[in-house]
Amino acid sequence: MGSPQNLTLEGRLKGAERNKTKALKNENNTKAKAYIEAIQNEDLSLRLMAKKLNDAGFKTSTGKQFQATKVKRMLNN
């Protein structure tokens, strides 16, 4: 279940920051974000953007297919 000291607010914030840094440095995310930025002017829904990413062979940082939620998070970062 984890270490009790990591369940504090400070521990959770530290973990969230680490995850964010890790995601920003991930090569899959970097390439996918560039692709998203290139197609975002096509007036596509988030779902269609995710489909285009998946059809083009992109994978998330964990090796999974893109979903609309992940596309939205990448656009917001």
Rank of each mutant, 00 (worst) to 15 (best):
G15T: 05
R47S: 06
L24N: 11
N41T: 13
Q65P: 14
V71H: 05
P4L: 14
S61R: 12
R12A: 11
D55A: 09
K20H: 15
E42D: 07
G2H: 08
K14T: 09
E27G: 00
Q65L: 10
A68M: 02
I36Q: 07
T21I: 09
A23N: 14
M49N: 02
A50M: 04
K22R: 13
G63T: 02
T21F: 10
V71Q: 01
N28A: 02
A23D: 04
A38G: 14
A56F: 06
T62W: 01
L53V: 01
N19W: 14
T8H: 01
L24P: 15
K52M: 06
K22M: 11
N77Q: 08
E10V: 12
F66Y: 08
I39A: 05
N77K: 05
L75T: 03
Y35G: 00
F58D: 04
F58Q: 03
G11F: 06
S3F: 09
E37N: 13
P4K: 07
K22Y: 10
K64E: 10
K70V: 14
K64L: 11
A38W: 08
I39W: 07
T8S: 07
A50C: 06
G15W: 15
L46M: 09
Q5T: 12
Q5L: 12
I39T: 07
A68E: 01
R47W: 08
A34M: 13
D55H: 03
N28G: 08
D43K: 15
F66P: 01
K25H: 09
K59C: 06
R73C: 05
V71S: 03
K51A: 10
R18I: 03
N41W: 15
D43V: 00
N29L: 06
K14Q: 05
G63D: 02
R18D: 03
